[in-house]
């Protein structure tokens, strides 16, 4: 491909800056339409298709949603998308406001404001539920993420503290030793990136899959 270098003087130099020709209004409109169409096709069709191709080749798994399949090849979820768990043998995720809960086509949060009575009520209810399910004393201090609704409604993570308090319940329900469960929790815990960014977190779906795959 031949390279055609720009030969005109830099447009920003002080010596230029005298209008060369007056654009007519009609010319402006014609160019607007042409330019919009060119850019829309370029940035809206060609570019995403090219990038999709590249992404599919380079990062096939990630480009398709980081899906997790079971032994039968069936998709059980995405490692990035949280799922709802209510059974005692599973680690429970956070509260979700996505649809009826963890609806991945309808992400969203509760949008409850800090002085909204509903927020306080929901939080207390969730706190009581957690304490009851996990046999915790009434004044047991709960981690903040355990009683709050996530932003996406699809938060795949919980804090290590929230995981820790569920260990006895899960271990008991599965008949596993707490140490075994705890070890799995550790395994699916990510620390801060570079020691600075983000928060320590436990990947709930993968942890639960691992639990299902653990023999007594």
């Amino acid at each position: 491909m031949s390279t055609s270098a720009t030969s005109q003087p830099p447009a920003g130099s002080p010596q230029t800056g005298t209008p060369r020709r007056r654009s007519s209004v009609r010319g402006l409109i014609v160019t607007s339409i042409l330019m919009t169409v060119v850019l829309m096709v370029g940035t809206g069709i060609i570019y995403p298709l090219v990038m999709t191709g590249l992404a599919q080749v380079l990062f096939h798994d990630h480009a398709n949603g980081s899906l997790i399949k079971n032994a039968r090849g069936q998709v059980v979820g995405s490692s990035l998308i949280g799922q709802n768990f209510t059974k005692p043998q599973y680690f429970h995720p956070r509260l979700s406001a996505a649809g009826k809960g963890y609806d991945a086509t309808s992400s969203g949060g509760s949008n409850l404001g800090p002085t909204n009575k509903v927020l306080i009520k929901n939080t207390i209810a969730q706190a009581n539920l957690i304490r009851k399910e996990n046999n915790l004393p009434a004044n047991y201090p709960l981690p903040a993420d355990a009683v709050s609704t996530s932003a996406s409604g699809l938060d795949p993570d919980i804090s290590p503290a929230y995981a820790d308090l569920q260990v006895p319940r899960v271990a008991k329900a599965r008949g596993l030793s707490q140490a075994t469960v705890l070890a799995l929790v550790k395994k699916y815990t990510d620390g801060r990136t570079l020691g600075i960014l983000g928060e320590p977190r436990v990947r709930v779906l993968q942890l639960n899959i691992a639990l299902d795959n653990t023999k007594k």
Partner: peptide, 27 residues
């Protein structure tokens, strides 16, 4: 929330504390 539901607002090494309503754990 801290007083009525006994929720930690202080951050510790294994939970973020603060106001987590409408936030993601990883952030």
């Amino acid at each position: 929330i801290a007083s009525q539901a006994h929720v930690q607002t202080l951050a510790t090494s294994n939970q973020p504390g603060g106001n987590m309503e409408g936030k993601e754990v990883r952030f």
